[in-house]
Design a binder for these strands. Structure first.
Lengths: 145, 145
DNA sequence: CAAAAGACTATAGACTTAGTAGACTTTATT
DNA sequence: AATAAAGTCTACTAAGTCTATAGTCTTTTG
């Protein structure tokens, strides 16, 4: 399951993506608008900022804005910051590889092979879906009608 | 991340899959062989049994054996028993659907749409990979050489 | 009847997640 | 220069989940 942290992160990025062109958005406003606990959001935005996805400005008139094009921020990268590995077992992880405690012979492990397939399938979606795509999909239905 | 419970469940099923044709296997033996805490394994096997995947026999000479063909036991079903939903968000789950706390308008939610894609991609692998497949893949490398 | 095995329920401890608190720093405005 | 508006950073707490263990009960075999 996706953590709330990750969901909040995506929602915040989506909101900031829609805010492009306007002055930066304050944490408080973002928190209210997206119904995210303020201090929790604060931490999440910090992480996103430290990872280079957000630009922040202190002081009066400050706030947060995207530091990259929304089309260049991919869900896979966000998930890795907030939730860590995308693979379901550490030994199948691309970016957070770790030997499984229970595993004796990794080379012949049938479980591992299967979960590498799962990881690849998941990544095919998440590494290609950007915040811009998520925003685009929100209005899909409206466009069709 | 897959829980230990799920990993143990898969390992146990694989071991029992290899044991087909022999007398049923006792919990203690299975636990030792697969290095799984005995009482924990006990619970897991019970779950699998109650879900119809295992047959158990009490008393002297008793133990556990598969109740279905290893080719008819799919990882997706096992994961659902041990870890619950396969989707990363409840609102994208096929078997454990639940509205997301944070979600206002599910119909136009771009996040949901993306994670339905992820779920489908994951399921495409997990719902088609059986315990027999996992066993088969263990020896893949040996066959190639 | 005794021993072997599984069935079932409860509980404890460790870890993770979600959320809160507070003190500090930078910037803009007056 | 003073003040207020904002973000930064670290620590902490509460609740929940996961892993594992313990103990008692039931069934089956010899």
């Amino acid at each position: 399951m996706l953590s709330k942290k990750t969901k909040y992160a995506i929602k915040a990025l989506v909101a900031l993506g829609k805010n492009v062109g306007n002055p930066p958005m304050q944490i408080v406003k973002l928190a209210e608008q997206e119904m995210i606990p303020r201090k929790f959001l604060e931490q999440i935005l910090l992480d996103m900022r430290n990872a280079g996805y957000l630009y922040s400005k202190k002081g009066a008139g400050g706030g947060y804005s995207l530091n990259k094009d929304a089309a260049d921020i991919f869900l896979a990268d966000i998930l890795r910051i907030t939730d860590g590995p995308i693979a379901m077992v550490p030994c199948a992880s691309l970016k957070f590889y770790r030997k499984c405690d229970e595993c004796h012979d990794e080379v012949t492990c049938g479980i591992r092979k299967t979960f590498i397939d799962v990881r690849n399938a998941t990544l095919k979606v998440l590494a290609q879906t950007s915040i811009a795509d998520v925003i685009g999909r929100e209005t899909d239905d409206l466009l069709v009608e």
